[in-house]
Write a protein that binds this DNA or RNA. Structure first.
Lengths: 216, 216
DNA sequence: TAGATTGTTAATCGATTAACAATC
DNA sequence: TAGATTGTTAATCGATTAACAATC
């Protein structure tokens, strides 16, 4: 039995990551259109607003399996449903937030995140003044309880908002607790087992791009 | 006189944006090495740690103008200086922060930002309970004062951390105040004059990528 | 029917990766 | 000198954009 062949058998019709990153922009815009009572929308019309190439928009939508009508465009409602289903927004996607500092609190209070498919069900911290308090309607628990709770509730997603210096250690504890996907908002470069999904939000990278554009 | 030709004359040796985004990762790693007393480092050695392609690392470094020695690698100190100079970290880069909510406070308390070249010198908000207080050593002023202060101090960078619903309006006020570069941390898609530099940090895009990787 | 827009295939563009000569 | 690594040119890969046929 040839393992290499088996891996290749999974036909690689994978979405480009840039497409994936544009998806939430689409749903946000489409929801605004829906509220304005717009029923159908064409790719060129969206292009006008978002400044994406119309062909690219058509291609992006095609990945979700939605069908449009020539001359008419797409049903706004259908599009929203199709994209959200494709992204897995309808799934449970329960997450723990690790590190209830300012950034963690900002994420906790950003309720729109639920609209993008992530459902934060508890937060963890080591700071005794924060532990066993509520933030919004989310309980902050001691970090020690992460392992037990993650296993009991079967939570697989962790949002990492601890200080950069504590990030690696916290991430390792998360993995031990059974967390398999980490949204890393710290500046740290995490070194974890390759089967763990890590998604970095590297703010400093964006700062570098901004400054370079400004100073050149 | 042909304008089109004049524009093209500026030989397009522009850095790829991915290169720019990797730069801060390099400086962070190199600074750690420096603290460990490492004097020289080769691209293959960095590749081992950061999992970037070694050729890509060599190319990235070349953009900054630094010179390496075959068989030895690069001087860690020289590299840091070269990259930081290239990114404009040495420049003043004074910035205002607009919106002193949780996310704004998180940015304000993230002192490492200074190490990436941005120097926040004041924050603005419309919330009376926040106005005229200090956060860390940064004064929070009323949003009304933005225009006057931006002009007086010649501040050109604005960090936008208001709620998404207020983002467009705040951004327009910033532009009127003479701000030419905006780091947009809100989910809003800003519609501004094309000469304004806007850099989005779109957290929801990263969530979309994470969930898709997890659910597939 | 005429024309706008979808859907798909082909061309282009840009970044990554590979190859290799130069060199310390 | 031998060999590792830089520096650069070429090949590959993937995403964007263009072209165009299908169709409502």
């Amino acid at each position: 039995m040839n393992t290499t062949k088996n891996i290749k058998r999974t036909k690689k019709v994978d979405v480009p990551e840039p497409t994936l990153k544009r998806m939430p922009t689409y749903t946000m815009h489409l929801k605004a259109l829906l509220q304005q009572g717009v029923v159908n929308i064409s790719a060129p019309a969206i292009s006008e607003e978002l400044h994406f190439d119309p062909t690219q928009i058509v291609k992006d939508f095609a990945f979700t399996g939605v069908k449009g009508k020539p001359k008419v465009g797409y049903s706004v409602v259908e599009l929203i449903h199709s994209i959200e289903k494709y992204l897995g927004v309808d799934k449970k996607n329960e997450a723990f937030l690790i590190g209830a500092g300012k950034l963690g609190q900002a994420i906790l209070s950003y309720h729109a995140l639920q609209g993008f498919g992530i459902n934060i069900i508890a937060a963890f911290d080591v700071d005794k003044s924060k532990v066993d308090t509520q933030y919004g309607n989310i309980q902050i628990l001691h970090f020690d309880k992460l392992g037990e709770l993650a296993k009991r509730l079967g939570v697989g997603i962790g949002i990492l908002t601890v200080p950069g210096s504590a990030a690696q250690e916290a991430a390792e504890a998360m993995v031990k607790s059974g967390i398999t996907a980490i949204w890393n908002l710290t500046p740290a470069k995490l070194r974890l087992s390759s089967n763990i999904i890590v998604q970095d939000t590297a703010m400093y990278s964006d700062v570098a791009v901004l400054l370079h554009k400004l100073n050149s």
